[in-house]
């Protein structure tokens, strides 16, 4: 999408071009989604730089999941634009992978762990492509990365919540994407799974992939992520964790619903 370049004054008075969204993994402008008359997210802008690991945080009902779903076209947006690596969603489809919330799926579905991961390859296979040993090896490698390869033949109903989450992550890995969008990947999982997942995400970052997570646990934001987007229907703040994940921004995001002691526990930089 071409835009007329906007001139911005830098601190020392020089005229500089703002960071272009031309090839950012994810660039969102003015995205608005509403349910009937109520806005779920309103005029949200964000640019996610390549190789970053960004957390989307906010209170319940703030529109975090909605933002992801609108980016992926799962819900229709009222207005705004989304560009992925400079292209529209349908053009850049192969470069995005999505890990939805576990609860959205019927886990008694007749499918094994390995089959779920292979589903990540369906787009590449198309309708009639044949599933070869190469694909199966790829799937098993992805399961290996999340520590689940010994359960490959198991039916998914027999897994714990954390194990199910790992399988979803393996499916996303199988897509071999450049941008990974995860919806509350750490919700309701045990400590070992949390560590396994964060290790995989960090390895993705080290491969210069971009990771965006809707995250529910404020205490771990600084440990896991380098960028944060604070949202409560509208964007409150965005930027590197060091400068944007502050007590003041959190108070603004959570509308004073966050107990002062909780923020103290997070031990954030002031301001």
């Amino acid at each position: 999408m071409r835009e007329t370049p906007v001139k911005v004054a830098a601190e020392d008075g020089r005229i500089v071009k703002p960071p272009t969204s031309d090839d950012s993994p994810l660039a969102v402008r003015g995205l608005t989604v509403s349910y009937g008359d109520k806005p779920a997210i309103f005029s949200v802008d964000t640019i996610v730089p390549q190789g970053s690991m960004m957390a989307i945080v906010g209170p319940n009902g703030a529109g975090k999941s909605t933002l992801l779903k609108a980016v992926l076209g799962i819900v229709k947006s009222l207005s705004g634009t989304v560009s992925i690596f400079g292209e529209s969603l349908s053009e850049a489809q192969q470069r995005v992978a999505y890990v939805p919330q576990r609860a959205s799926v019927d886990w008694d579905f007749p499918t094994r762990v390995i089959d779920v991961v292979l589903m990540g390859l369906y787009r590449k296979l198309g309708l009639l492509g044949w599933l070869t040993n190469h694909h199966r090896k790829t799937a098993r490698a992805c399961l290996e990365r999340v520590g689940m390869v010994q359960f490959a033949e198991r039916q998914i109903v027999q897994l714990s919540g954390g194990q199910q989450q790992r399988v979803f992550l393996a499916r996303a890995l199988a897509q071999d994407a450049d941008l990974y969008l995860l919806d509350e990947p750490f919700a309701g999982v045990d400590a070992a799974t949390e560590k396994a997942i964060i290790d995989v995400l960090k390895s993705l970052k080290s491969q210069n992939k971009t990771v965006v997570c809707v995250h529910h646990d404020l205490a771990t934001v600084a440990d896991y992520f380098d960028r944060v987007l604070l949202i409560n229907v509208q964007k409150i703040a965005e930027g590197p964790v060091a400068t944007s994940f502050t007590a003041e921004n959190l108070q603004r995001t959570y509308g004073g619903r966050l107990a002062a002691t909780h923020i103290d526990d997070l031990r954030l930089p002031a301001g």
Binding site: Q93, P100, V105, M119, R123
Partner: peptide
């Protein structure tokens, strides 16, 4: 199969 199992993921995958 994909749509029956996980419709959101299917949509996000471009189906």
């Amino acid at each position: 199969t994909l749509v029956a199992f996980d419709a959101d993921f299917a949509k996000a995958s471009g189906w």
